[in-house]
Structure formats: C-alpha cells, structure tokens
C-alpha cells in the first residue's frame, strides 16, 4: 500500500480527519526549510505538501507568491528539493509527501526523469496546478510507472458533467479548492464546503482533502467535519515569513515557531 493510502486508512481507523500542511521548498532558505520539514509530522501534520517554487505562480495569492520568490533567490531547483526529501526520508518513512507546483519546471526537467527522481527521493504524489486532466496524458504514464499519485484539483466551478473527467485520472486523493480565488485570500465557508463535498462524494471514492482559505485551528476543525483532510498553506507560510524577518539566520527559532503553529492547527483534530 502506498504511504498516502496507508495514511488515509490509519486516519479512518482513528476516526478523524487529517491535517495537510504546505510549505515552499527552500523558503526562507534550504537549511531552515529542512529543519521545518523534519519536525512537521511530530507537530501534527499527517501529510506534507512541498511547494516547488515557480517564477509565475498564477493560482497563488501574495503569501505563496512571496515564499516562491524567497526560495528562488537561492536558485532552488528540483534536484535540491529531491535531495531535501531524501534526507527527510532517512528519519521518516511513513508521512506522505506530495509535491505541489506548476508544470513548466517539470516539463523542462523531463517527465520521465522527474518521475524517476521524485520516486527515488521518497515523494508519494503530485499536485500540478496548471495541468488539468485534459493535458495530463503525457506525464501520467511516467508517474504511474513510478507509483506516484497524480492528485487533481476540483473547484466550486467543476460541474457534475465535468467531475468524471477528473475522477477517471485521479489517484491518491482529491484536493477540493474551497473558494473561487487564489490561495490565502478569501475565507472558506464550512456550509459551502459541506454542500460541495456532498456533491463530490457522488462521483468520487478517493479521500477528499479541502484547502484554500483555511487559516486557523477553529477553521480546520469546522472544515474537518466534512472532509477527509484539511489543507493549510498560506497561514503557515505567513508564519515562516514573519519569523524569518524577525529572526534572520536563526533556523531553529523559525522552525520551532512553525511547529508550534502546526501543533495548534492539529489540536482541533485529535
């Protein structure tokens, strides 16, 4: 069983929803990122999403845009991300890691080589924001060959007619975007999420994670009632940004602050 499937099975046994935490690789620098990554699971993350920084993050709001820019100042490349994940895997072989990003860096790296290197590093799945199912066929065979899940997004605008197109190619879990908007701006509404997820369940057997616009422990708790997992991204990235500003070149202090915040987010779930 893949790490993602095993984790959702375990969550089901525990009778709770999972917490998915997003951080951008190399933010604010590689050493600090490695420290943050290393402690996320202990702090309460059930699945870790690692952002692959991109120069033009069209679906992201200011928080994640700036985190990408901080990372790109150090010229963070995919090979650096794979190496950081391989290091993480030496001490944690259970927590699923999902890479999230845009297609161009992957396309440029080469789909086959990307899948091979990601798998070797210990990555479990991909969320590629600008690769809808209609465009995924050139990458999917390579991901499948290396047992990597391609996790598709669904949105409030995804109609019942469209959902089967997405579901047919999805694996791992479905990432439902709770709001129409970019990351970290609008606030997710639990009542809307309840209705959307109920609609999705009619088409989807995979676990459903809900993200975008979820910023606090209270919101995590409220959304968790309706979802198999809840994703927090911009709010964590904001903690990193603020802490890196106050404590430049203090990786331990920054990591401790992030872990404390994640612990608080997870508190509503356990």
């Amino acid at each position: 069983m893949s790490r993602i499937a095993a984790r959702f099975t375990a969550l089901k046994t525990q009778g709770r929803s999972g917490l998915v935490t997003f951080i951008t690789a190399g933010d604010p620098d590689m050493a600090t990122f490695q420290k943050i990554l290393g402690g996320l699971a202990i702090a309460g993350a059930d699945i870790i999403e690692v952002g692959m920084p991109f120069s033009d993050p069209m679906a992201d709001g200011p928080s994640i845009q700036m985190s990408s820019q901080r990372a790109l100042k150090h010229d963070i490349a995919l090979k650096d991300i794979f190496s950081a994940i391989a290091t993480f895997r030496k001490t944690d072989n259970q927590t699923p890691i999902v890479l999230m990003g845009y297609y161009n860096p992957i396309y440029r790296y080469g789909g086959e080589r990307f899948s091979q290197d990601a798998s070797a590093a210990g990555v479990d799945g991909m969320i590629i924001v600008d690769l809808p199912p209609e465009e995924a066929d050139e990458l999917l065979p390579h991901l499948n060959a290396h047992r990597l899940n391609l996790i598709f997004l669904t949105a409030p605008t995804s109609s019942d007619v469209r959902l089967p197109t997405i579901v047919n190619k999805a694996s791992g879990f479905i990432y439902h975007v709770a709001v129409t908007g970019v990351t970290g701006t609008k606030s997710a509404d639990a009542d809307v999420v309840k209705e959307d997820v109920a609609r999705l369940r009619r088409h989807i057997k995979l676990p459903i994670a809900v993200g975008f616009g979820i910023k606090s422990a209270a919101q995590v708790k409220a959304i968790a009632v309706h979802a198999d997992a809840v994703v927090v991204g911009s709010a964590i990235v904001d903690v990193i940004a603020e802490s890196a500003r106050k404590h430049p070149s203090a990786p331990d202090t920054i990591a401790a602050g992030v872990h404390a915040f994640v612990k608080d987010l997870a508190s509503g779930l356990k």
């Binding site: 679906a59 690769l131 809808p132 465009e135 997004l153 409030p156 605008t157 109609s159 975007v177």
Partner: peptide
C-alpha cells in the same frame, strides 16, 4: 478540438478556470 497546434497550445489552467 483540444486547442493544440501540434504539441503547442492547449488548456494549461487551474481547475477553477477550466469550466470558464
């Protein structure tokens, strides 16, 4: 029909925009 000119073109957008 999928908006391709050879390998070029296409619809590489976030899911929220695909229906639009």
């Amino acid at each position: 029909e999928n908006g391709h000119f050879g390998i070029f073109g296409g619809r590489y957008v976030a899911e929220t925009l695909v229906p639009l």
